[in-house]
Design a protein around this nucleic acid. Structure first.
Lengths: 224, 224
DNA sequence: CGCCCTATTGAGGGAGATCAACTCGGGTGG
DNA sequence: CCACCCGAGTTGATCTCCCTCAATAGGGCG
């Protein structure tokens, strides 16, 4: 895991690291430049200066926090079109890494803040993003605090089914370890629950990351 | 638990239910009216129309969600000066109840939204509130997903110590059950951990809700 | 083809839940 | 003022779900 700066050369094989400026929120000069990151590469680290916010163009990103003894909590997965790293304050409160090779647009936070100050519509757009995230976090809090392993995995499958569709099923970009750290479980437990669901005919796994929901109703029930 | 409407008469003994309009965010006509709620009374329910946002004047409020089988997750505690019920969308995504007898100010959401549209400063103020909440939720997510019972309780004590000081110690407004449902634990576990901390001399409990942190360092360590 | 990382499966243990008994304290009514 | 009552809190014994440790299987990349 290298820093974003180091990666500019490191991922040269993926193509040009920088692209032309790209508009993020049209009409207010909120444009940024594109960068590519290889799988598992660090995009930014916890407590680093938060100079940029990020928008995923392709691929997937995870944000997470790590305790001193290595325990990791994945805060969220960010897929194409989504924005991350936008918290207030001068420092990032989580780390971000590429789940898969990916391309993201970087926008200077100073530019965003200036646009937000000058223009209420930008401020309201940011507010909308923050509120969407709040809804998701509160939902996830319920899972982490009060749901069983089976219920958490069911909720995860339903969440992802809408977000990364792939020919009738879904193509998960993340590993079992990422899922486990998102759901507050272990790799083994995630794997066991998935196997269980497959044995019951609730899901089908053509590859371990290619999952088809055969009985959405059952999963919704299991989600409680 | 009655609805907010029913409570207007129900809590008459607490004094007048309504007060004169009170400014919430000065200078933009964001004023509301005060209401009183008795301990454990419902302020609003999950999936009810979200006509109002709320600001705590005195006392404490809990917001929470409940699963069909009764499992409860407390999303947050709201003390004097804090605002709750402000999520986007037409429906409340959590219920709110008075932890103790309390007084809150109600502001029409339509008024807030109008002020936000007309005035970027209001929108930025709302954005700031949302971001504070995001920081708190992400921190709490780490606790729920990856921390032990002892670590969660330590984090809770440290959080509350700053928020409800009372003559050198702190006066918790909420029951063990509330704490347990906030931390994703059971009443028994919370009680056991607190007893443990008291036996070690890390805290002192004059009454069960009156707690003094004798060794903040140890708690910060336990918080990991 | 062979290596290594990821995923799966199995066996055993432990943190916290559950079930149950008991204590405490505050409020109410005699 | 005291006796009673009831909800809240504490403590103990047992259980269970998930974690831990370990071995095996699969799959992508050089």
């Amino acid at each position: 895991m290298q820093s974003a700066q180091a990666s500019i050369e490191a991922v040269g094989y993926l193509g040009p690291a920088f692209r032309d400026p790209i508009e993020i929120f049209p009409g207010f000069g909120l444009s940024g430049f594109a960068m590519r990151f290889a799988r598992n590469e660090e995009i930014f680290g916890e407590l680093e200066e938060a100079d940029f916010a990020y928008k995923v163009v392709s691929g997937a990103v995870r944000t997470f926090r790590v305790l001193s003894d290595g325990r990791r909590q994945v805060v969220g997965f960010h897929l194409a079109g989504e924005i991350f790293g936008l918290e207030r304050g001068g420092l990032h409160l989580a780390s971000a890494e590429a789940v898969s090779d990916c391309e993201v647009i970087l926008i200077r936070r100073t530019v965003i803040e200036k646009a937000s100050s000058a223009n209420g519509e930008v401020a309201r757009w940011l507010l909308g993003l923050a509120n969407e995230e709040l809804v998701r976090l509160r939902e996830h809090m319920m899972r982490l605090g009060r749901k069983t392993a089976a219920e958490r995995v069911a909720a995860f499958l339903l969440e992802m089914d809408g977000r990364c569709p792939n020919g009738g099923g879904m193509a998960l970009p993340m590993s079992r370890g990422d899922i486990a750290d998102y759901l507050g479980l272990t790799v083994e437990t995630v794997s066991r629950v998935l196997s269980q669901y497959e044995r019951c005919g609730i899901i089908a796994m053509t590859h371990c990351r290619q999952i088809l929901l055969r009985d959405r109703r059952a999963l919704q029930g299991a989600d409680a």
